[in-house]
Design a protein around this nucleic acid. Structure first.
Lengths: 217, 217
DNA sequence: TGGTCGCCGGGAAAATTTCCCGGTTCGCGC
DNA sequence: GCGCGAACCGGGAAATTTTCCCGGCGACCA
C-alpha cells in the first residue's frame, strides 16, 4: 500500500485527487495539507511513501515545500503536480529533490502511474514538459546580459511603472534618450509587445510585481 | 438527476471533480470540456442543467465561455469555480450571466451544495469572496469593473503576452478591433504606460505573472 | 593614433495609437 | 412595436509615438 500526502491549497481540487487516488487498490491518501507548514508536520508525524505537491501555493512555493519535506522525512519521494510547464520550474523542482514532475493537463492515469513509478524510485516527467526542457537547455542564454548597463537600468525603471518623462527627470537625461534606450531594449529582447517585455523582465527577477492579494488601489 | 458539464483545461483536475460529483446520488457529469469550443459544442448537443466553469483557461476565458454557453442553451445555469477571488472577476462573471461563484479553496461540500442551489435557480457566492466584493463595492468601484466584457477579455489576453494579431486570430476579429479595444482599456484605466497597465492587471489577478523562479540559472 | 563601444540626443521617416465615424445587435422601458 | 442606449465591430484619417539614422563625445585598448 502506497501512502500518499497531498499538498495543494485548493480544498476542492485536493478532494478530487483524493477520490482519484483512493479508487486505486494499492494506494491511499494518508494526509492532506493546504500549506507548507502543514505538509511539513504531516511528513514528520505520519508514515508516508509519496508526496504529491502543487507548486503554486499561497505564500511559500512548492519548491520550498519539496525541500523541507525531503529534509525531514528520509523515505519519502516527491511528485510535483502543477499547472506550470515552464522549464525553469522543472529544473528547480528536480534540483530541490523531486522525483517526478507532471502537469495538471496530464491524463489521470498518468498521475496514478506516476505515483507508482515514483514510489518505486524511478523518475517521471510529462512528455509535454520534457519537450520544453530540452529546447530551453539548448538555446536559452540569459537574454538580459545583452543589454548595456544603461539599457538595463532604463528597463528596470520603466518596468516598475515609471513613465519615460519621469525616468528622464530622475536620470538627468533627455526624454528622447530614454525612448531611444527603450527602443533598443525592445529590439534586443525581441519582444512583440510591452506586455511580453515586462513579463520577460519579471521572469528574470528584474522587478517585483504586485500580486492579486494586494487588491485595493 | 442534475446533469453537469465540466469546463476546465486541466485533465486531472477535471477527473477529480467528476469523482466528487458522481459520488452524489442525484447528480452526474454528462460532459467534460477542456476548451470553450468544446464546452459550446457540448451545451448544444447534450441536455444539461449546470455548467461548472473554470475562469483561467488557456486562450479564451471562462467569462467568454459563460456567455457563449448561456447564449446557446436556454435551460442551463453556470457555476463558476476558480482559484481567483478578486472582486473584478466576480462582477464580470455575474454580469456574463453566471448564477454562482465558488473558489477552489471552498469545501468540497460547498461545491456539491452549490450545484444543487444553482440548479434550483438560486444564487451562490463563496463566503470568502463575498467579503472582498462587499469591501470593493463600498470603498470604490473596482477599476476593472468599468471595462466591458469584451475589453476585459482583450486585456486578459494581451496581458498574458499575446500580440494583437494573435488575439484577433483567436477571437475571430479584425486586428483593428483589438487595437480599438485596447485603446479603450488604456483610457478607461488611465494608465501612462503599458507597463503600468500590466501591473494593474496583475494586481487584480487578471493574469498570473511569471516569477523569478521560472528561469533556469 | 585609429578602431570599437557605450552613451547622449536631434530630426525625419515609419509605425502605431487615438479619435471619429457608421453600422449592427441586444436589452429595456414605454 | 418602437425608440433609446450600450456594447460591439471595423474602416479611415489625424495625432502621436517609435524607429531609424545621424553626428558628437568620452573611454578603453591594441
Amino acid at each position: 500500500m502506497i501512502r500518499i500526502l497531498l499538498l495543494d491549497d485548493h480544498n476542492i481540487v485536493r478532494s478530487g485527487y483524493r477520490r482519484l487516488i483512493d479508487a486505486e487498490p494499492d494506494m491511499c491518501v494518508a494526509a492532506e495539507a493546504a500549506t507548507v507548514d502543514d505538509a511539513y508536520a504531516a511528513a514528520r508525524d505520519t508514515a508516508l511513501d509519496v508526496a504529491v505537491v502543487d507548486l503554486s501555493l499561497r505564500g511559500a512555493s512548492g519548491i520550498e515545500a519539496t525541500r523541507r519535506i525531503l529534509a525531514r522525512s528520509s523515505g519519502i519521494r516527491v511528485l510535483v503536480l502543477t499547472m506550470h510547464d515552464s522549464p525553469g520550474f522543472v529544473t528547480q523542482a528536480f534540483r530541490a529533490g523531486a522525483m517526478g514532475y507532471l502537469t495538471k493537463s496530464s491524463d489521470p492515469g498518468e498521475l496514478i502511474g506516476g505515483i507508482r513509478q515514483v514510489a518505486a524510485g524511478r523518475r517521471v516527467l510529462s512528455a509535454d514538459v520534457a519537450q520544453g526542457v530540452a529546447n530551453a537547455a539548448l538555446e536559452e542564454d540569459d537574454l538580459l546580459s545583452r543589454l548595456t548597463p544603461r539599457e538595463f537600468e532604463v528597463l528596470r525603471m520603466a518596468a516598475s511603472g515609471e513613465s519615460p518623462p519621469r525616468i528622464a527627470l530622475h536620470m538627468h537625461l533627455s526624454h528622447k534618450t530614454i525612448l531611444n534606450h527603450l527602443s533598443a531594449v525592445r529590439q534586443k529582447l525581441d519582444t512583440e509587445t510591452d506586455f511580453s517585455l515586462l513579463r520577460l523582465a519579471a521572469r528574470h527577477g528584474l522587478v517585483e510585481l504586485p500580486t492579486p492579494s494586494s487588491v485595493p488601489c
